[in-house]
């Protein structure tokens, strides 16, 4: 394989990962890293470094729209970013300590967990009253958003900010260690613990992911794990794919069917990654 062919293959795979990711509501990293390492034999540290930059790109691109529509809660985001950036730093350092084998094992475990979260999200959640929380009041976390389907402004209240902070630290650590956005961990933290509406959780998670990823990208860059030859085409490809997906494919593909298929693929790849970590 020549460098030109390699660049084109990586670009193509990245466009595909971005497309799929945007349809499934996850970042491209979860798809991209296994393909780069298992198929193209790229060193996992370079794969993670390339992925983390593409995560910043897709998150920032999507967030630009969410912020404009006032769907992302800027205060909740800033408050939780204290925990995610601290976690991202922890994770980036851990990945340097545990070596490739440990990264494979944790990656496999997180993939399997993400698959289960996606399965559960197919059920609809029941609405219970949101308990009052003095700290959430003090932080002014409550907000409102425009619900297109209902055609009105929906107000919501936020609770248990400290539980959210703790879960975000974990999500940040995973993100920093594996070079993924870990939206699969962030959305449940806001959705289940802090009781933000799902749409707001998704938008706010997207908005926060860029900052989390930037914190770990700084460490990877300084360590020399962000290789322009791999990260360049990955970054352009994933962004292009995510943009195409959200613009032309959203709503035209049966999301439920796609999601079921994806959960299967996710579990299989998780198994492969775990096996590789185990055997090496």
């Amino acid at each position: 394989m020549t460098p030109l062919l390699f660049t084109l293959v990586v670009l193509g795979i990245s466009v595909g990962a971005g497309l799929l990711g945007s349809l499934l509501g996850i970042g491209g990293g979860l798809i991209l890293i296994p393909v780069l390492t298992l198929l193209l034999k790229v060193d996992i540290h370079y794969a993670v470094g390339a992925s983390i930059v593409s995560v910043i790109a897709t998150s920032s691109g999507a967030a630009a729209a969410y912020v404009r529509e006032r769907m992302a809660n800027l205060r909740v985001a800033m408050f939780l970013e204290v925990a995610t950036t601290a976690g991202a730093l922890t994770g980036a350092f851990l990945s340097g300590r545990v070596g490739g084998r440990g990264v494979y094992l944790v990656f496999g475990a997180v993939m399997a967990y993400s698959a289960l979260v996606m399965l559960r999200r197919m059920r609809s959640a029941e609405a219970a009253p949101v308990p009052d929380d003095a700290l959430a009041d003090r932080l002014g976390l409550h907000g409102s958003y425009w619900d297109e389907a209902a055609g009105r402004e929906v107000e919501y209240r936020v609770t248990r900010p400290l539980a959210g902070l703790g879960l975000m630290y974990v999500a940040g650590t995973v993100s920093g260690m594996l070079g993924i956005g870990s939206g699969a961990l962030k959305v449940p933290a806001m959705d289940l613990a802090m009781r933000l509406p799902l749409k707001v959780s998704t938008a706010t998670s997207n908005f926060m992911i860029g900052v989390t990823a930037a914190a770990s990208a700084g460490v990877y860059f300084a360590r020399g794990h962000i290789d322009p030859f791999i990260a360049g085409p990955v970054c352009v490809g994933v962004t292009l794919g995510a943009w195409l997906g959200s613009r032309y494919l959203m709503g035209r593909v049966n999301a439920l069917w796609l999601r079921a298929l994806f959960v299967g693929v996710l579990l299989w790849v998780a198994f492969e990654m775990l096996r590789k970590g185990w055997m090496s």
Partner: peptide, 25 residues
């Protein structure tokens, strides 16, 4: 004021990530 403090902490953590990474590398 409260959010000025929170945001400053986040910004500081981001700068630390670049500096610490450089020191380690």
């Amino acid at each position: 004021r409260l959010y000025v403090v929170i945001t400053t902490v986040v910004l500081a953590l981001l700068l630390v990530s670049f500096l610490l990474g450089a020191a380690e590398g």
